[in-house]
Amino acid sequence: MNKTKSLSEYKRRKRIIDGIGTAIVWLFVIAALFPIAWMILTSFMTQSDIATGRIGIPNHWKNYVDMWKNVDFFNYFKNSVIVCGITTVVALGIATFAGYAVARFKFPGSGIFGAAVLATQMVPGIMFLLPLYLMFIKIQDTLGIQIINTYAGLILVYSAFYIPFSIWILRGFFAGIPKELEEAAIIDGCSGFEAFLKVILPIARIGLIATGIYIFLMAWDELLFAWVLTTSSDVATIPVGIRLYVGNYQNRYDLLMAAGCVTTLPPLMIFFGLQKQFISGMTAGAVKA
């Protein structure tokens, strides 16, 4: 009887603890989703409704039309797609070969190379801002190569920032692939490079997808360096364009919220479309590393 009573008491306590834990998790979820829901709701309200605090049925679609007409938002969107897309390709390509080399080959300093790569992520990016800007100005004055206010400048900076951590992620994937697979491919007549292309890369595709998503999302949201390294709207990205909204258009929060909603769509679609690959890729890479 005592054992049965103890078991039922244990189950009751477990249900209470589980219920409290679930409630706490839901509170955090609601707190995280509330700003997004408020942004979407506000994007369909008029400027007067926002100023007076009136909340009604969100049916003001004109904000999205005005956003594209009154502000060159398409130009910012195009610039972000170009910069982030090329950055993803460049950084992922370099990180793929570098991660494979670190995982497979032994060379002087290879033991500490991985830790050194990861250590670069410990330094706050803002510390690079002024030296990088001055260096670009010096190159431009000395060699006549324009880097500031160009696609190439942003792509160069973003690639340099995201390659180290991408190497660390992919290193874990390549280290977890048995060498015997490459050796078998070489015995079958493949060269070392062909074995890498035809055997290793298909196996590591989940890691490549996860790393590519990471690079794209980080570049898409970056504001600080894009704000400093772009001096005109010709190459300004979406974060810079939204930042310009604040003072240039009478603080039109309705248009600002509409722009925010449009800005979140591409990364949202990419993440949910490749959600399984991203989560499993990041998890597997962390375990193998």
Results as ranks from 00 to 15, higher is better:
residue 145 I to C: 04
residue 210 A to E: 06
residue 173 F to C: 07
residue 218 M to L: 09
residue 161 F to C: 10
residue 206 I to E: 07
residue 188 D to A: 11
residue 143 L to R: 12
residue 209 I to Q: 01
residue 216 F to P: 10
residue 214 Y to F: 13
residue 173 F to I: 08
residue 171 R to T: 14
residue 240 V to Y: 05
residue 236 A to Y: 00
residue 150 T to I: 04
residue 182 E to A: 07
residue 199 V to T: 14
residue 154 L to T: 05
residue 209 I to H: 02
residue 203 I to T: 15
residue 200 I to Q: 08
residue 142 T to E: 11
residue 166 S to Y: 04
residue 160 A to M: 09
residue 174 F to H: 04
residue 158 Y to K: 01
residue 182 E to T: 09
residue 202 P to K: 00
residue 243 R to T: 15
residue 239 P to F: 08
residue 196 F to L: 02
residue 156 L to W: 05
residue 213 I to M: 10
residue 171 R to S: 14
residue 174 F to C: 01
residue 243 R to V: 12
residue 180 E to I: 06
residue 239 P to C: 08
residue 224 L to A: 10
residue 174 F to A: 02
residue 238 I to K: 00
residue 173 F to T: 03
residue 239 P to D: 11
residue 218 M to F: 11
residue 196 F to T: 08
residue 235 V to T: 12
residue 193 F to A: 02
residue 160 A to L: 12
residue 236 A to D: 04
residue 142 T to D: 10
residue 228 V to N: 02
residue 143 L to K: 08
residue 151 Y to A: 01
residue 207 G to M: 09
residue 203 I to F: 07
residue 202 P to D: 12
residue 168 W to K: 02
residue 165 F to A: 08
residue 144 G to T: 05
residue 211 T to F: 04
residue 189 G to K: 15
residue 208 L to F: 07
residue 198 K to G: 04
residue 166 S to H: 02
residue 144 G to V: 07
residue 211 T to G: 01
residue 185 A to L: 14
residue 149 N to V: 14
residue 164 P to C: 01
residue 197 L to Q: 13
residue 244 L to I: 14
residue 183 E to L: 14
residue 172 G to H: 12
residue 164 P to Q: 01
residue 213 I to R: 06
residue 188 D to N: 10
residue 179 K to Q: 14
residue 201 L to V: 15
residue 157 V to F: 00
residue 164 P to A: 03
residue 164 P to V: 03
residue 226 A to F: 08
residue 226 A to M: 03
residue 158 Y to I: 00
residue 169 I to V: 13
residue 184 A to W: 00
residue 142 T to Y: 09
residue 206 I to D: 07
residue 183 E to D: 14
residue 203 I to M: 08
residue 218 M to N: 15
residue 234 D to P: 06
residue 194 E to S: 15
residue 170 L to K: 00
residue 232 S to C: 08
residue 235 V to C: 10
residue 195 A to F: 09
residue 220 W to V: 06
residue 213 I to N: 05
residue 221 D to Q: 12
residue 162 Y to C: 09
residue 224 L to H: 06
residue 169 I to T: 04
residue 207 G to W: 03
residue 195 A to C: 12
residue 162 Y to E: 10
residue 239 P to W: 11
residue 150 T to C: 04
residue 175 A to R: 11
residue 157 V to R: 01
residue 237 T to E: 03
